[in-house]
Design a protein around this nucleic acid. Sequence first.
DNA 1: TATATTTAAGACAATTAAGTCTTTAATTAA
DNA 2: TTAATTAAAGACTTAATTGTCTTAAATATA
Lengths: 146, 146
Amino acid sequence: MLLSKSTEYGIRATLYLTSLKQEGYVSIRDISDELDISFHFLTKIFQKLTQADLLQSFRGPRGGVALARPADQITLLDLVTAIDGPALFTECVLGLPGCGERKPCPLHEAWGPERDNLKALFENATLASMAADLETFDLRLKILHL
Amino acid sequence: MLLSKSTEYGIRATLYLTSLKQEGYVSIRDISDELDISFHFLTKIFQKLTQADLLQSFRGPRGGVALARPADQITLLDLVTAIDGPALFTECVLGLPGCGERKPCPLHEAWGPERDNLKALFENATLASMAADLETFDLRLKILHL
DNA sequence: TATATTTAAGACAATTAAGTCTTTAATTAA
DNA sequence: TTAATTAAAGACTTAATTGTCTTAAATATA
Ligand code: FES
Ligand code: FES
């Protein structure tokens, strides 16, 4: 699995939040209901994103969460690293400590560039661009019961 | 994390086994000692690889494990799928069921090709080519205590 | 045959990830 | 001021992964 469940949920939920284009705060309950994600679990994930200054939160009636900056200034890489940490983009694919040129593992030469591609993929995907695609191509963020 | 610990160990151990170029069987104990991997855990991983017909095993004195086919006919993709299953190369990166063109998620267009690259990377890496690199470039398979 | 060697198999424990529940704190509105 | 709403925090449970240990089965060799 490339991303943890937490990160999968975090991306889907933040993307949905973005797509609402709502002025004020959106309640976590609304988001968790809409995407069929456990409310309390999602709350914890959003707490991480709030602590990483990617989201703002507000308690009480009319409270909820909102993007902390414009949607074109938050990337999926921001979300992934805030939730799962940077390991995917820095660590040895074989789990050996100290990935680098000095004493590389047999996969380093092939994995290094691939890892950079992957990082670029997440870095180039802003919440704004993703939300635009979402509308344009009618993409899905939730499981479908067909 | 891209690969599970089991797969990381499985790749390192099989690569080491290949590099020995030994005629008969190599005991699992020798491999686990050399690479600092738990013997019993590695035994289980090798059992999966044996059941997938990538390795052959033999019990009793002078027993152990050996490649089931020539090293240029076993790829890292074979190892990964035998241990972790094919999910990494088939499933939606956001965890939504039924990754495909019919109702793609917002990352599908970018992730699809990237996933194919990743698959090609593992598919093009045979045990033979990796073992050759290992010699040529003095690469490492075990943690170093510098 | 008896003993030592080695993988197979499965029970078991420890750790981490995932998910649930309760209580607290902040805020609004009646 | 009181009650309702909502996120924060943390205890707790469950499930999956990782790791350890014991016993059984197969095999070679003395
Ligand atoms: S050392 Fe293994 S990927 Fe860099
Ligand atoms: S539907 Fe998400 S990657 Fe294909």
